[in-house]
C-alpha cells in the first residue's frame, strides 16, 4: 500500500521552544490514525503544520506524493487535506447550512455546494438544524457542524482535533459509527482525542507525542503496553 500522507523529519521551533522534534510517520489510504500525548505534546501544532497554518521549520510533507510543506492552507485544502479546530471555528453569524456550504465552494458552484452541504449535514445527523444560526448552537453541535463543513470540501484526509470533546456516551457512539462509515467510504482520518476508550476502539494505529517528540507508534494494543508511553503518562515509577 502506498502512503497517502508521508511526514518526514518535521520539526517546528517557536523561539526557544522545540514544539515538534523530528516527527516521521507514513499514513496509508483508508487508515484511522490516532494522535495522543499529554497536554502540550505538540498534537495541535502538528495538525496546524500539516494544513499549512504554521510553516514547518524543517522537514517534508507529501500528500499523494506531492510536496505540500510550506504551502498556504487553501492550497492544501484544495489538494485534499483539511482539519477541524480544537476550539471549533465556525462562522458564528451565519446559518449552519451556510457554514457547511462555504466548504463546498472549494470545488463547486453555490447551488451544487448547497446540495452537497445538505448531504453532509445529513451525514452528521444535523439536517433538522440547517437553518439555525451557528452561534446559537451547543458546543457538541458546533463540533459536528465543523466536521460537516470539513467533509463538504471533499477531502482525501481529514484531521479531527478533539471533535468528540463534550459528547455524551450515546453521542460518542454515534460519532464513532460516523467515522467508521467515512473510512469505509474511502476517507483517511487522523484524530486527536483525549477519550482513551474511544480512540483505542476506532484507531488502526496510534502515534504518541511527548514534548514534541514522537515516542511510540503502533497498534492500540502495542501502545497500551509500551513502557515509554506509560512513563510519559504516569511518570517513571509506574514504568
Amino acid at each position: 500500500m502506498t502512503a497517502l500522507l508521508q511526514i518526514s523529519n518535521i520539526s517546528k521551533r517557536f523561539g526557544g521552544l522545540q514544539a515538534l522534534n523530528d516527527v516521521n510517520v507514513s499514513i496509508a489510504r483508508g487508515e484511522i490514525l490516532g494522535l495522543i500525548g499529554p497536554n502540550g505534546a505538540g498534537k495541535t501544532t502538528l495538525f496546524s503544520t500539516l494544513v499549512g497554518l504554521l510553516k514547518p521549520s524543517t522537514g517534508s510533507i507529501r500528500l499523494e506524493g506531492r510536496e505540500i510543506a510550506g504551502m498556504k492552507p487553501h492550497r492544501i485544502a484544495s489538494a485534499g487535506m483539511v482539519k477541524t479546530f480544537q476550539n471549533v471555528a465556525l462562522f458564528l453569524d451565519s446559518s449552519v447550512l451556510d457554514n457547511v456550504l462555504t466548504g463546498g465552494l472549494l470545488r463547486h458552484s453555490v447551488s451544487e455546494a448547497r446540495a452537497l452541504a445538505r448531504h453532509c449535514l445529513a451525514q452528521v445527523g444535523l439536517s433538522d438544524i440547517a437553518d439555525k444560526r451557528a452561534g446559537d448552537l451547543s458546543f457538541p453541535e458546533r463540533a459536528r457542524v465543523e466536521v460537516a463543513r470539513a467533509l463538504c470540501t471533499e477531502p482525501r484526509i481529514l484531521l479531527l482535533d478533539e471533535a468528540m470533546a463534550a459528547l455524551n456516551h450515546a453521542e460518542m457512539d454515534e460519532f464513532l459509527a460516523l467515522l467508521r462509515r467515512l473510512r469505509d467510504g474511502g476517507l483517511t482520518l487522523v484524530i486527536v482525542e483525549h477519550h482513551m476508550k474511544a480512540i483505542m476502539s476506532i484507531c488502526d494505529r496510534l502515534l504518541v507525542l511527548n514534548f514534541g517528540r514522537q515516542i511510540a507508534i503502533g497498534t492500540p494494543a502495542e501502545i497500551a503496553r509500551d513502557p515509554a508511553v506509560i512513563e510519559a503518562y504516569l511518570g517513571r515509577s509506574a514504568a
Binding site: V51, L53, K72, P73, H74, A77, S78, V82, K83, F85, A89, L90, F91, L92, D93, S94, T102, G103, L105, L106, R149, A150, C152, T153
Partner: peptide, 11 residues
Amino acid sequence: ENPSAAEAIGV
C-alpha cells in the same frame, strides 16, 4: 467571521 477557518477550508 473567521479568517483562519476560512483559509483552512480552502478560501
